Simulated scan of single mutants.
Amino acid sequence: MATREAYIGFKGRNNSSSILVNALSQQHYLLTNSFVGLKRDIDKLPADYDVVYLFGVDKNLIGSFRIEQCAEKDGIHLVTNLDLKSLAEKLSSNGIKSKISKTPTHYLCNEAFWHLLEKYQGKAVLIHIPTIKNFNNIFEEMTFPEHEYDSVQNYLNRLGYCYTTRVYKEVGKYKADKLYIAPWGDMLKIEEVKEYQKVSDRPFYNEMSDEEKAEIRKYSEDMRLPYEFIKFSRFSLSN
């Protein structure tokens, strides 16, 4: 049975936690930026999640995340029972630096984390991320022609992965095992990058239209340049 995950951030168009949870999951939750409001929001969450990821913003973070181990409210400490070391290793393997903190934070993030730890019996974690300015320095955008948006998302929904061909100035731009933000908001992970010289060597060559073959050939083989065939998928913290 698949692990049921909840991705939670805080409301705000320019709040990087809101942007990140939207990129990580099409089904996510945003908390109200007040003590009373966030408690009300958490009370309404389904109780059967196996793992809950809460993201908050720390303006002092630049180029890294901070994973929180515990929360404190009215002198009561609650501690996550999730494997934070494995989570940090997962982030590191995808190009994201992080550290684990054993000191409770303050204000809304701590309050929300405490209530989530209580509700889900320790199966929650708070991850602090940079502000939107520094957040954008961590994740680059992976571009696609606008007419491909729907088809790419359909492949991701149906298969869990998709392919793209990159030519000319985009060769070498995207790296395997790195994370990128799609124009429509998904968090994408590059699984594999393969380089080819001849268009006829491209996987699924026989399924391509003559127009597609000619377009790739124009900016690669005809110019005596290589092209790349890239496999990518949606990123999940649990996979």
Rank of each mutant, 00 (worst) to 15 (best):
K175D: 00
D186Q: 15
E170R: 10
V171W: 07
T164Y: 11
K169P: 12
Q153L: 13
C162I: 04
R158Q: 12
T165P: 05
R166H: 10
H147E: 15
Y161K: 13
C162G: 09
A182C: 06
K175N: 06
N154Q: 14
H147I: 10
E146G: 02
L159C: 11
K178W: 05
G160T: 09
D177L: 08
L179R: 00
N157V: 05
A176R: 14
Q153S: 11
Y174N: 01
D186W: 07
L179S: 00
T165I: 15
C162Q: 08
G185C: 01
Y163A: 03
P145K: 01
E148K: 15
G172Y: 00
A182P: 04
A182M: 08
K175I: 13
K175Y: 01
L188P: 06
Q153M: 11
Y149F: 15
P183I: 02
H147G: 02
K178P: 03
K175W: 00
T164M: 06
I181F: 14
M142A: 06
E146C: 04
M187G: 05
G172F: 00
L156V: 11
Y174F: 14
G172H: 00
E148V: 05
R166W: 09
M187V: 02
V167L: 03
N157S: 14
E170L: 12
L179N: 01
M142P: 04
S151H: 08
D150V: 12
A182Q: 03
Q153W: 03
K169A: 10
T143Q: 13
G172S: 05
K173H: 11
K173W: 11
Q153N: 15
T143H: 09
L156F: 08
N157C: 07
T165F: 08
D150F: 12
G160C: 09
T143V: 11
G185I: 01
L159P: 05
T165A: 14
F144Q: 11
R166P: 03
Y168Q: 07
W184Q: 08
Y155F: 12
A176T: 14
K169N: 13
M187A: 12
V167D: 01
I181R: 15
R158C: 04
S151Q: 05
D186I: 05
N154T: 12
E146N: 07
F144W: 09
P145E: 12
S151F: 08
W184A: 08
K175V: 10
P145V: 00
K173S: 06
L179C: 07
R158P: 00
M142Y: 13
A176V: 03
M142K: 09
E170A: 08
M187Y: 10
T165L: 09
Y168W: 06
F144M: 15
H147N: 04
Q153T: 02
Y180W: 00
V167Y: 09
K173P: 01
F144V: 15
N157K: 15
Y180R: 08
S151N: 09
G160F: 12
V167F: 01
K175C: 00
K178I: 00
P145L: 10
L179V: 01
I181M: 15
Y163P: 04
I181D: 02
